[in-house]
Each structure stands twice: as C-alpha cells, then as structure tokens.
Amino acid sequence: MFESLISFVREQYGTNEFIPLHAPLFQGREREYVADTIESTFVSSVGAYVDRFERDMAAYTGSPRAVAVVNGTAALHVALKLAGVQPGELVITQPLTFVATCNAIAYCGAEPVFIDVDRDTLGLSAVALAQWLDEHARLDTDGQCRTKADGKLVRACVPMHTFGHPADIDGLVSVCAQWNLALVEDAAESLGSLYKGRHTGTFGLLGTLSFNGNKVITTGGGGMVLAGEALGARAKHLTTTAKIPHPYEYVHDEVGYNYRLPNLNAALGCAQLEMLDSFVQAKRELAERYAEHFRGSELSFLTEPEECRSNYWLNAVICQDGSQRDALLKATNESGVMTRPIWALMNRLAFHANARAGALPNAHWLEERVVNIPSSVIPGLCR
C-alpha cells in the first residue's frame, strides 16, 4: 500500500528525486518586483509594495483592512493585544495546532485553555467549547466571562483553520457572542479558503495570515492582520513602533512593536498574490487526485467540510492507528517522499502541562493517526 502511494506521488511530481512536503513556486513577476524594490533602494519597512500588498490582500479577502507584519506569530500577538488580552487572563484555543498559536497567547502574559477539535475539520469544536463554558464559566454582572472556580477572566477564543480547512465558524461565532468572547481567527494556513463563500479570517473581531516559505504563497517570512477600519488603524500604529506621523520628529505615544514587513518581502508577496487563484486551483486538483487514489484504501483522505472551499494547504490522510501511521512515515521518508505527523498536542508540551483543558478525545485520536503528504503546487496544474 505504501509503495503505491510513493509511486503515485512521484508520478504527480514527475521526479525520482527528493519530494518535499511543501515548496514555494515562483513563476510570476517575483524577480521583476524584487529587482524594482532593489533599484528603488526602499528595501526595508517603507515602500510602495508594502502599501500595495496590504491593499491587494484586503481586496482579496474582503477585509476592510489588512496590515502586513514580519510573520504570522507577530500578527497573532498584535491581534490578541487589540482584542484586549491582558496578563493573567485566559484565552481559549485548540491543542491540535502549531506552537505559534500558543506562543502568541504567552506573549500577552495570558494562559491558554485547550478545548477539543472536530474530527471533520480538525478545528476547534463549537460543541466542545459550549460544553466547557457551560460547566466551567459564568457571566459576571458586567457581562464578562469568568471561570467559576477562581474568577479568571476569559477574554478571547482562537480557533485555527487547520491545513486550510475552515473550522465551524457559524458555531464558534454563536458561542463566542453568547459568552462575550473576542473571536480571533488563526487563518495562517487558510489563505484562499472560503466558509460559505466568505474568506476565512474575516468572521471574528480579527484574523491573521502567514506567508512563511511553506505556505500557499510566501513573502519569505511575513504575516497579516485582518481587521475592521478602526482596529486596522490601531494594528498599523502598534506594528510601526507606535510612532506619531511627523516629517522629522520621533514621537511615540505608547509601547509599540517593530513588526513592519520589509518592502523587499512585500514585493515578493505582491507577485505571489497575483498567482494565488491559480495556485489554489492547482492544489485543489491535486487533492482531487489524492482523493481518488485513496478511495477504497485503508487510509482515509481528509476532504473539505461541507459548504466550504479549502485551499488544501497540506493534504492529509488519517491512518487506522498509530502503528500504521509510524509505518507510513518510515516507508515514505526512507524513499525520499517527505511526510510528517500532525503536531504533538500543545498540552503535552512541558510548559503547558498544567494548562486548563477540557476532555480531548478527538484531538488525541487525530494526533495518533494524521499524516501530511506532499502538497506543493504542481506547475503543470496552474492555469
């Protein structure tokens, strides 16, 4: 069975060389735009491409504002600050995520609360969230969500759209509204994904994107905060060292962050964004081929949720158990076809060992079984 998968992957990518999990593709105007930036000498934090990248991303996602920053973790950090997260408060998230989600919570001095995910989306479960809140939380006289046990303020909720598959946004929006929680979407992996026709990252108070080298499009490093006009303006101010505009004076009105995306990176991003639709189309066609290949197999291919369009950032299969997962990982990687398991659950990490958590049966089940398989855009599928 594994030999069949290895042969299939090599057939798709047309090579007997090493096949990475997800490599960037540059076949647009990347060199032109980057060279233009170098010629202009505006290669750092000020330049026309930063402004253009923000405008183009806002238009693409339908967000009123988009603010470019150095990476997705910085975007999450700023988003949580703008959502009002303070030291000692609680932020609900999922244990099945990349560590950056929890790092951003820690940067704010807050503590994560880990709630289970749905098996079909791999994203935070609205049902599990509601159950935990009903059991462990209350609304105080000011309408704020606090824990029953010790009165800790529960400020925000951060679901992630895992591997580009949209989480149950309708359910999460409803629960967060009921409990007065700020919804901050970690859409780092889901650029180009739609939930009921609307782009991920635009349903909550704020959303965040990532343009790391392994994402659907890349700026080398980079991220984006998606927000309304007012919060977007605040995000821009905070991420540019909180400097008050002035022709020559240096006046800063609060503690800010030097999170500005360099113009050089933004130039790359502008060119990549022009290719995004063709990249997503190509990735979705590859996913269809995988789905057909695995039909009737012992391995179950993860497909997009109903009423959603996934970008299929990283394709994934669900093994029957941990032993089959380990055998798959060993066979493919030894054959030069890169695969990897899903992340270790965040509550297993030593520095989150004492974090609050609900029951996590789905997260544990998926942790033992999910394997990512090669997902790079195939140039020949781009149209």
Rank of each mutant, 00 (worst) to 15 (best):
L124W: 09
N362K: 07
V69G: 00
T141A: 14
Y60K: 11
L183I: 01
P87G: 00
S278K: 15
H161G: 14
T93H: 13
E229T: 14
L21F: 01
K215V: 03
E288F: 08
E229Q: 08
Q324H: 13
A177I: 03
F53R: 06
N315G: 11
P64K: 12
G269W: 02
L381H: 10
A291P: 03
E89H: 12
L366R: 09
R155L: 09
G207D: 09
G88E: 08
Q27M: 15
Y257I: 08
D170G: 14
L205G: 05
T239V: 08
E135V: 07
G72W: 12
P64L: 03
L261V: 05
E292M: 12
D186C: 03
R295T: 13
T208H: 03
Y312G: 06
G14D: 08
V85H: 06
V154G: 06
V216F: 01
S310T: 12
R356K: 11
Q131W: 05
G220Q: 04
A331H: 13
A187Q: 00
N315V: 06
A23H: 09
T15K: 07
V317R: 05
A126F: 03
S174E: 15
R29C: 14
R289K: 15
R348K: 10
D134V: 11
N16A: 08
L90I: 01
R10Q: 02
N347M: 07
P341I: 06
G192S: 04
G62Q: 01
N333F: 10
P87M: 05
E298Q: 13
A242Q: 06
F351G: 00
M338L: 14
V50W: 04
A188G: 14
D134A: 13
K152Y: 06
G72R: 04
E368D: 13
T240Y: 14
L153W: 11
L264I: 15
A75W: 00
R289Y: 08
V251M: 14
T15W: 03
I6P: 07
F42I: 04
A149D: 14
G28E: 14
I105P: 01
V158S: 02
S335L: 09
G171Y: 08
H199P: 03
G232Y: 00
M160W: 07
N315I: 02
E189R: 11
H293K: 12
W179L: 09
S125E: 01
T339M: 10
Q324G: 03
I6Q: 05
T162A: 12
L345K: 00
E334D: 12
G296T: 05
E367N: 00
K215S: 04
Y250T: 11
V69L: 03
N71M: 06
G192H: 11
P341V: 02
A23W: 14
K236I: 00
D170N: 14
L209F: 15
L25E: 09
V337D: 01
D140K: 00
A167D: 03
D36G: 15
A66F: 07
E54M: 04
G223V: 02
R260V: 15
R234A: 15
V67H: 02
Q324R: 05
R356D: 05
C319S: 06
A363N: 01
G256K: 07
R119S: 07
V117H: 07
V158E: 12
H352Q: 12
F53P: 03
